[in-house]
Design a protein around this nucleic acid. Structure first.
Lengths: 254, 254
DNA sequence: ACTGCGATTATGTATATACATATCAGAAAG
DNA sequence: CTTTCTGATATGTATATACATAATCGCAGT
C-alpha cells in the first residue's frame, strides 16, 4: 500500500491519468497562478516539498518548474526558492487568418479576383518593400487582387513576391486562387513582420473598394523571410468598418 | 585527453561555455532549422546519433528535442524519428508599449493630461465594455485622458476601471500620471484581448486631437482580466499618421 | 559592531538506468 | 496471397544519483 496522501492528491487534482505526471504538476501550478490563488511574489513550494506532495522524484518536479520558468510564469532563485512572477510585458499573440476563412466566418460567399500581374526586375521601391536582404533581389512578381465578401469588395491585396526566393511563382496562375495560401504551402517562412495602421484610401483603392476617396481604411502589411531571404511583401487594405485585428493573450498555453 | 570528435564539436558549434549543453544542442538544431539548412520534413538525427555526436547521455539530447517539439519547431514520431515541421500558424507576437516610451522613442517630450474623471455604478454599456464576467460589476471609474507628443496631441485614452477588481483606484489621483502604468504595477493580469481597427474620428475625439471631423484614426482597444475578473477596458485613438502597431514573429525565442 | 568564512540550502545540469508505448518490418500462419 | 503475430526501434516518462553553483545564514575572530 503506497503513501495515502500522495496517492489521493494524484487522483484528485490535475488532469486525467493519460497526462504525464510532470505535466500534471505543471498544470496544477499554472492554474493556481492564473486563477490568482497564488499572487505575484508568492513563494511556490520548494522542489523537495512538491516531491513529497506528489510522491515523485525531484527530477520530475524540476522538469515542471523549469518549463514554467522558461515560459516566464515563475522566477527561480537559488537558495531562496521559486516565485510567481508579475506579468510585465504587454505582449499578445496575433493570429493572422486566411481571408477566405475570415469572409466565410461572416457567413458570406467568398470570391477572389486577380486585377493585375506584372513581372519585372526589382526596382529600388520593390527592394524597400521586401525589406532587409543580404543579397540583391532579382526578378519580382507584383500582384493586385481583390477579395469579395458576397457582392461587396472586402479588401484589396497588393503583393510583391521575390522570384529569387520563390521561382515557382513565375509559372503559377493566380487567376483562381489567391497567392497567400499558395505561398504558405510553398515556402516555409522563418520570420515575419506585421505593421498595422490606419490611413485614408487613395483614389485608386477607394475606387476598387467602392468607397469615397479619403475614407478611413485599416492597412495590414506583412513582410516574410525564409532563411534570411525576403520572400514576399503584402499590403491588405480594408474599409474601416469591414475588419478588425483581434489578439489575445493568456499564459495558459505554455 | 578526451574523445576528440565530441570535444571539437562542443567547442566549435553552439554558444560559449557558459550555456548548458542541452541548450547548446537546442540552439544548434534550431539554427539549422531557421536558417533553412534543414527544410521542413527533414529527419533530425536520432537521439542516439546526437548522443554520440555531442558525447552526452540520451536524457540531455531528449531535453533539447522535447523542448523544440513543445515550441512547435519539430514533430516527434515514435519509431520514425523527429522531423522539421512546416510553420503553419500565421501567428505573431504583438507587444504593446507604454505610450510615454513610445513618444519618447520619437524624440519628443511626453505630456499627459487628465480631461475627465467619473465614478459611477456600472451601466449596461460599462458592463459590456469590461467584457464577460462571472459576477455583476459594481462601481466603475471612467477616465478620459490626452497624451501629448511635444505640443501636439498624440492620442486620446478612454478608460474604464472596475473598482470591484481595483478598489485602490478610487483613491488614486490620475492628474500627473496615466492610469495604464499605474494599473500594471497594481494588478497582475492573467488575460488580455486586443482589438485593432480603423475608424473616422467622431466630432469630440477629432476636436481633442485637433483633426478634421471624419479624419481616419487607428483605434486600439484592450480588455484585461485578472483571475477571471474584468479589470479594465481602454480605448486608444490615434490620428492615422501618428501610429502603427508592429508585430514580429521568429521561432528563435523558444 | 563589523568582517570574513564556512556550512547550509535550493536550484541547475548531467548521467545511467529502467520500463512503457507506439509503430513498423518482417516472419509465421492461415 | 493475405492476415496475424512478434520482435526491433525510437521516443516518452520517471527514478536515483551526483556534482556544480549561487545565495544566504550564522558563527568566530578581530
Amino acid at each position: 500500500m503506497p503513501d495515502s496522501t500522495a496517492e489521493m492528491l494524484e487522483e484528485t487534482v490535475g488532469g486525467d491519468a493519460s497526462t504525464s505526471l510532470y505535466q500534471r504538476i505543471l498544470n496544477d501550478i499554472r492554474d493556481r497562478i492564473v486563477s490568482g490563488e497564488w499572487e505575484p511574489g508568492y513563494r511556490i513550494p520548494f522542489e523537495h516539498e512538491l516531491t513529497a506532495e506528489y510522491g515523485c522524484s525531484r527530477m520530475t518536479v524540476n522538469k515542471a518548474l523549469s518549463q514554467l520558468a522558461k515560459a516566464g510564469l515563475i522566477e527561480r532563485r537559488r537558495r531562496s526558492g521559486s516565485f510567481v512572477r508579475r506579468p510585465q510585458s504587454q505582449a499578445a499573440v496575433l493570429e493572422i487568418h486566411d481571408i477566405r476563412v475570415e469572409v466565410e466566418a461572416l457567413g458570406l460567399p467568398y470570391r477572389y479576383e486577380l486585377m493585375a500581374q506584372t513581372k519585372r526586375r526589382a526596382t529600388t521601391v520593390d527592394r524597400d518593400r521586401l525589406g532587409p536582404s543580404p543579397s540583391t533581389a532579382g526578378q519580382v512578381l507584383a500582384l493586385q487582387c481583390l477579395h469579395y465578401a458576397g457582392v461587396r469588395p472586402f479588401c484589396v491585396e497588393d503583393r510583391l513576391i521575390s522570384l529569387a526566393a520563390v521561382p515557382e511563382a513565375a509559372d503559377q496562375e493566380f487567376r483562381k486562387s489567391a497567392p497567400g495560401p499558395w505561398l504558405i504551402g510553398q515556402v516555409p517562412w522563418s520570420a515575419a513582420e506585421h505593421v498595422i495602421r490606419a490611413a485614408s484610401a487613395d483614389s485608386e483603392t477607394a475606387a476598387d473598394l467602392g468607397l469615397a476617396s479619403g475614407a478611413p481604411c485599416l492597412i495590414i502589411e506583412r513582410r516574410t523571410w525564409s532563411a534570411e531571404r525576403p520572400v514576399t511583401h503584402v499590403r491588405f487594405t480594408y474599409p474601416a468598418n469591414a475588419h478588425a485585428v483581434v489578439a489575445r493573450f493568456t499564459p495558459s498555453d505554455s
